[in-house]
Amino acid sequence: MGRFVLRRLLHMAITFFAMITLMFFLFRMLPGDPTATVISPALDADARAAMQARFGLDRPLIEQYFVYLASLARLDFGLSFRTSRPVWELIELRLVNTLLLILPSMIAAYVIGAIGGALMAWYRGGRAEGSLVLAATALQSAPVFWLGMLAILVFSIWLDWFPTGHIVTPGRFPEPSWRMYLTLDFLHHLALPFLVNTLYNLCFPLLLMRSTMLSTIGEDYVELARMKGLRERQVLYGHAMRNSLLPLATTLPMILGWSVAGSVVIETVFSWPGLGLLMIEGITRSDYPVVQGAFLLIAVLTILGTFVADLLYGLLDPRIVYR
């Protein structure tokens, strides 16, 4: 077990290193002179050179790369071209915002999806089950940003129950701070994106759980559990559902990583100041250190998700032998 974890950790390190390298060179190949947005071309050559030196853009690419690696190790993502402040300062709260939206809604989606899918399989064959499968597939097929737009149209514009976007009422906190998470205003803003994201992400675990359960129900051990005189509820939760949870549980961390990556879309619709929106803003303002920082953090979460999924698979299923 220890060796297995160590190996997976090593793999993760390699993946991460490759990612950093790839991204570094990719960003350096971006078209246009990134310094142009902060250093006015009207400045004389000396002043421009001074600015370039300040951002370290005058040194050879390979040297920039090693400096970059060293600073990453210190969690130093460089300075924003636009604000000249450390990127990490910008990212910190954005990361919290993204996680506060994504984590609870993914957990809710998985809990509801698992139980709902199990019950659909248990009471299979009815008309209700058929319509639920159709509804879940349709929902899964709709683009999530469109669902968000419809939700805003109905619940914010027509019914006026929820605000149309942002994390708190604009102007209430001139400077983002930790205190804003403790307000009811925050929860009021969180509600709609949370609901839309939960509803959308619920479909995958729901349909997966249903199909896994359908094959588990036919297993001999489920029949034997019933023969042993267990109550139906015990057979459902203790055997059929318990065993069907395995494939589902192992997908959670990976899907979590993916949905952090996918949060770009939902954050854009609801103007939710998370990592994804930060990245989009960075691109439109050519603020590449910010884009790169946000991207790397999203990548870390994705890779971490895959890693945890691998470990979880081994932990939950005793038949897996660690190599």
Partner: peptide, 30 residues
């Protein structure tokens, strides 16, 4: 009546036991 009155030795020993539960737990639950 099941198991306490009429018990069963199942057909396929590999599939009749739940693969993710210890056998003691499977007997205990019966």
């Amino acid at each position: 009546a099941r198991w306490s009155g009429i018990a069963m030795i199942a057909q396929s020993a590999l599939n009749a036991l739940n693969p993710v539960k210890r056998v003691s737990a499977q007997i205990a639950e019966a």
